[in-house]
């Protein structure tokens, strides 16, 4: 019984994890955003599942029905979906600009270019006045 009652949630958890994995493991900026969408959509399932009542119908009042599912999670998720698309849109705009500026949408390439920039600044700073005693160890 325990297994059946929770089965639905477990699948949702698996979906969330797949999305989450895409976000953190992949280098491609667009793919990260797709992963983010999957991650968020899966969280929506968590909410909607908890609002479901067995044998109920959609929460639109009608004389023919007595039991309705819980409307509150639906409202929250409506909000969350719209927030999700807003984030995606902004993220995509950033990706477009990043590609124009760096010529790549792979996280690695971008980091390499950034580090390169920073090292050049350091050379300029210490090149003439002081030897470079301390290097920036930071790699992120």
């Amino acid at each position: 019984m325990n297994i059946i009652g929770l089965y639905n949630y477990w699948i949702v958890v698996v979906l969330m994890l797949i999305g989450f994995y895409i976000v953190i493991a992949h280098e491609n900026l667009i793919k990260k955003l797709v992963g983010l969408t999957i991650f968020q959509t899966s969280v929506f399932f968590l909410y909607i599942s908890m609002g479901k009542v067995a044998g109920a119908t959609a929460p639109i009042l009608d004389e023919n029905y007595q039991i309705y599912s819980n409307p509150l999670p639906h409202v929250l998720i409506l909000t969350a979906i719209v927030v999700g698309i807003a984030t995606t849109a902004l993220g995509l705009a950033l990706v477009v600009r990043i590609y124009e500026a760096y010529g790549s949408i792979e996280e690695n390439d971008i980091q390499v270019q950034d580090t390169h920039d920073r090292l050049e600044c350091q050379l300029e700073a210490y090149g003439r006045q002081k030897p470079p005693t301390l290097f920036d160890q930071e790699t992120n």
């Binding site: 900026l29 993220g91 950033l94 990706v95 600009r97 990043i98 500026a101 760096y102 971008i110 950034d114 920039d117």
Partner: peptide
């Protein structure tokens, strides 16, 4: 341009 990557 680095602001873009940082913002992302």
């Amino acid at each position: 341009r680095r602001a873009l990557a940082a913002s992302y």
